[in-house]
Amino acid sequence: MAREPILKTWKLFIGGAFPRTESGRTMILWGADDRVVAHCCQGSRKDLRNTVELARKALPRWWARDAYNRSQILYRIAEMAEGRTAELVDAIRCVPEAGTDRAPTAATARKEVACGIDRLVAFAGWCDKFPQVIGSRNPVNGPYHDFTMPEPTGVCGVIAPNEPSFLGLVSHLAPVLAGGNVAIALASETNPLPSMVLAEICATSDVPGGVVNVLTGYRRELLPEFADHRDIDAIGGATEGNEERRLLELGAADNMKRVRLEHAAEIDYHDDDARHSPWTIEPFTEMKTIWHPSGS
């Protein structure tokens, strides 16, 4: 007798827990053959506001950790993801690629997962190195020690592109975390499953609750709240068209959010040289210059 599979509704990842959306709404993910692949939460503006509160609480503890420790936690995410490669590949392949009725090939999906995991390793390594690379000791006139070093901007919205659903999110999330920030990610709208698998990986990777948060839902509903929320300090990620960019930058102006957005269609996520640069971390840091007199 055929066994019916147990299909769960994927929940949000907020503050280290997996709650359902407060709105009680779900969205259906349709597969290539027009069958229901999964149900996901249709996150609401209120969910985002709740998330910001928990992320804000997590921020000082995350930044207070030694860089070596943050480095190991990012590496732990990569280790855990490696063990769940097959699940990530399946999640990537569960919906058709944009503009087609076919799922990505297994080889394409495996390449995407491998690249994403390697990216996590790359940024794990940056945690305790980028401050030396982008900071400075300033040769000022007069008897002063003067140095400049990066600090995290704070609570960062991370807008994943619709595709590639896994690699896109990882590529925008990793620099934010390596910089000592906490992240509120908005998963791919067309295929949120790989993001939710990543959330489960984070939940079992010693990532403190609230440091990584993942919401699923509609961009047109949630992006305005990302833009306007006054306790989000920065927004990074990929936009699907200039209207999204304009909307996010317009809202950001009100509380001087730092915004670093790229157009999803213009990004080559497989370009390791470009994506592993420390200058992808820099937009989510604040340079602090400290002066102290020296001498008597």
Partner: peptide, 12 residues
């Protein structure tokens, strides 16, 4: 720190 309003062309 133990000073105020110092500026220099080399200091961000």
């Amino acid at each position: 720190l133990n000073t105020y309003n110092r500026f220099d062309a080399t200091s961000p």
